[in-house]
């Protein structure tokens, strides 16, 4: 058994732990924004670690797996930002006990939605 197999498998296990924690966060958190915090970003690190581990396990595919990891790293913040803005625009409320909502405060005197980009 080669050493890089073991190292890759351990790295993959660590990444899978983060993937699992992200999914657990999405079940436990009380509102959409907190779910997004736990869900879509714990999975980013989980993806990077898992794919790095798998690339180590199978080095001849490393370049292609790297492209997939880069793709996830670039698109993930974009999609979660788009979802968060859409949800806030659609009026999904923050959970009870949230401290402040600066965006809603700044929007209300202007009378509803401002211009979108």
């Amino acid at each position: 058994m080669a050493a890089h197999h073991l190292a890759g498998a351990l790295l993959t296990l660590l990444g899978a732990l983060f993937l699992f924690l992200g999914a657990l966060g999405i079940v436990r958190m009380p509102d959409l924004y907190n779910r997004m915090q736990a869900g879509t970003k714990a999975t980013t690190l989980g993806n990077i670690l898992t794919l790095a581990g798998l690339a180590l396990y199978h080095p001849s595919w490393a370049l292609k797996i790297g492209v997939i990891a880069l793709f996830v790293l670039v698109t993930n913040p974009l999609s979660s930002h788009a979802l968060a803005r859409a949800a806030h625009g659609a009026g999904v409320p923050l959970t009870e006990g949230s401290v402040s909502d600066a965006l809603a405060e700044d929007l209300s005197p202007e009378g509803g939605e401002a211009v979108e980009s």
Binding site: L21, R28, D31, Q37, A38, A42, D101, A102
Partner: peptide, 18 residues
């Protein structure tokens, strides 16, 4: 965040700031 997710009392204090 992982620490917050696994701790049973869910210690969060969320809000939107500028």
């Amino acid at each position: 965040v992982a620490r917050r997710v696994v701790s049973p009392s869910l210690p969060i204090n969320p809000g939107i700031v500028k």
